Computed example of a mutant assay.
Amino acid sequence: MNYDLHNTLGFYTFLMLFFMAVTGLYMTYPWVKNDLIVSLRGSPIDNISKNKESGDDVFGGLLEVMLQKQDEKKNLKDTKPASLDKIVQL
């Protein structure tokens, strides 16, 4: 009985934890959100922000902030890393 109870509770707990992990990735990382939307035959989030109507949309504002941060990260990839000597001099 303990073994069956262990398997049953473990299965349902796994489903709940898997759902929490996937939604956490979806809400945290824009590339996961974009990949999921595109895989479900939606338009990428870059296209959504360009076609967005003006208005008081809370989630639209969050989407804009997320896209701005994503662009900032892309710009940081092009910068040359600072050496330890330069940091010490500063």
Rank of each mutant, 00 (worst) to 15 (best):
Y3G: 03
Y3A: 07
L5T: 07
H6I: 15
H6T: 09
H6N: 05
N7R: 11
T8D: 05
L9S: 08
L9G: 06
L9Y: 11
G10H: 05
F11T: 12
Y12V: 12
T13M: 13
T13E: 15
F14C: 13
L15K: 10
L15D: 00
M16G: 08
F18C: 05
F19P: 00
M20C: 06
A21H: 02
A21E: 11
A21W: 00
V22R: 10
V22T: 08
T23Y: 06
G24E: 11
G24V: 02
Y26H: 10
M27G: 11
M27A: 12
T28K: 14
Y29M: 13
W31S: 04
W31I: 01
W31D: 05
V32A: 14
V32W: 01
V32I: 13
V32N: 05
K33H: 03
N34D: 15
N34K: 01
D35F: 08
L36I: 11
L36E: 00
L36K: 02
L36T: 12
I37P: 05
S39Q: 07
L40F: 07
L40D: 00
R41I: 09
R41L: 14
G42H: 01
G42S: 00
S43L: 12
S43Y: 09
P44L: 04
P44I: 01
I45E: 08
I45P: 12
D46E: 09
D46W: 02
N47G: 06
I48K: 15
S49P: 05
K50L: 06
K50T: 07
N51V: 04
K52H: 10
S54H: 04
D56E: 03
V58N: 09
G60M: 06
G61M: 06
G61Q: 12
L62A: 14
L62Y: 14
L62K: 12
L63Y: 02
L63D: 06
L63V: 03
L63C: 03
L63H: 04
E64A: 05
V65M: 02
Q68T: 10
Q68K: 12
K69L: 08
K69T: 02
Q70H: 08
Q70P: 00
D71R: 03
D71K: 12
K73R: 14
K74C: 00
N75M: 10
N75D: 11
K77I: 09
D78Q: 14
D78N: 12
D78G: 11
K80C: 04
K80F: 02
K80G: 03
P81S: 07
A82M: 11
A82C: 07
A82I: 08
